[in-house]
Amino acid sequence: MKIELTSPIPGKIMKVLVGVGDAVNEDDEVMKIESMKMENPIYAPATGTIIAVCAKENNEVEVDDLLLVIEEAC
């Protein structure tokens, strides 16, 4: 099943820590978003493989913007 991770806060993507094909566990840190001058870790919503990364470093994001998609491991 595909699980989408959307941005929980508005801000700027500081760092994307994963790429397409990477395996992640639920609650692994996948990126950092700077919001209100604070570095906020963003965690994977599920365990699986990253199949798409939409977030680009230094881009501004709004709440609910798509960040990445995970194919959930069965």
Partner: peptide, 26 residues
């Protein structure tokens, strides 16, 4: 401002990693 909003965000995430209280705390 904005120290205590950051404290709230961090504290909230300690108990639930998928909780982002920052904007509400702001």
């Amino acid at each position: 401002f904005p120290m205590s909003a950051r404290v709230v965000m961090k504290e909230g995430q300690k108990y639930n990693k998928k909780n982002y209280l920052l904007m509400h705390a702001m």
